[in-house]
Design a protein around this nucleic acid. Sequence first.
DNA 1: TGACAAAACCGAACAGTGTTCGGATAATCG
DNA 2: CGATTATCCGAACACTGTTCGGTTTTGTCA
Lengths: 207, 207
Amino acid sequence: MFESSETVTTDRRQLRRESTRSEILDEAWALCRDVGLAGLSMRELAKRVGLRAPSLYSYFDSKDAIYDAMFRQGYEQLRDHMGDYMGPQPVTRERLKEGVRHYVEFCVADTTRYQLLFQRTIPGFEPSAESYAVAVLALEDSSRALSAAGIEGDAALDMWTGLLSGLTAQQISNDPGGERWIRLLDDAIDMFLDHYGALPRKKGSRK
Amino acid sequence: MFESSETVTTDRRQLRRESTRSEILDEAWALCRDVGLAGLSMRELAKRVGLRAPSLYSYFDSKDAIYDAMFRQGYEQLRDHMGDYMGPQPVTRERLKEGVRHYVEFCVADTTRYQLLFQRTIPGFEPSAESYAVAVLALEDSSRALSAAGIEGDAALDMWTGLLSGLTAQQISNDPGGERWIRLLDDAIDMFLDHYGALPRKKGSRK
DNA sequence: TGACAAAACCGAACAGTGTTCGGATAATCG
DNA sequence: CGATTATCCGAACACTGTTCGGTTTTGTCA
């Protein structure tokens, strides 16, 4: 069976459409890294992809829709980045630390992306339901890893997210490019696990 | 000696100036609470104080200067709020917890103010050197209280700020008006103090 | 190939923003 | 009162996101 000519047409057009769509997104990331997340301008973005501002509106409904697509893309990148660290390996203290280090590495690697994914810094922007679902999916992985470590209960999980997001945020906003808070991560995880009595240390491994 | 008439005049004028200046600031706070911190509009703000936008520029150099004055005001409020809790009283676990609760209370009492003081949510805004000095002054108090508890060293202090700012931020952005992370505060402080071996608990007071 | 339909693109405009400038108004002084 | 000075505002500039109508390009069909 041959595809109907109409379908072929649609495919070609659609291919081209999605091509420039992703080109717009790539350029949006680059522009945001240049001028800051909030400095994204439709006219400037259009200029960089060889268009005028109104043309962007046939690819995205609004500027917030661009942020939304970037948001979704960012969380997909996070999922990819963490992929290997979320397997069914035996959860040990060291593996947990590795996972957290890997996660924070992702966060500090691109502060613009971090702002978009984890902070509410764009005035009117809120992710759409679909994009938010991707975010929840990516974050559920980490909570699953935690419960695999024998840590259960909302309180412990809230403490975990509060502690780690706090250290990460301090790192990014108060010592970007450095590792003043990053080097506290291992210690923080020990503190946390000791407190909740999970994954006991081997004898004599205190301090 | 009588003051020269010129001085009297200047006083009168200056009094009136500072009066409307603080009226502008009050209305700016109110407006921000209505439309969000980033939604502050010079024309709307002017309308609320019975002026037109250009007139505001004889009281503040720019919109950011208004944010700056608010920033400073906010940290002065923090200082006032914490005043009593920073005295030379003996530092106990319970007093430390009280102080932290009091601090977080201040944060969640006005999320607009919290955004301005602790998060970098306004695109171009950075506090001036003078206002930043007020902020440092207010935050130094807490670090002094911590060292009074026998906790020394940059690492411990960074861990402290990371932990508490993390819990506070989660509270405000993920459960505004609730106390999901607030009720973890006492436990978090116990966790922290135990880990650093400060202010030991009384015997048998574990859990 | 040429005609036709649809998609892509853009110029102009609208309403909004922060900000500046020159002149009008009001308050204070000698 | 007249003169001075502080206060205030209308108009404008450059920018923003966004919409509309019409032009240009593209792809498909007879």
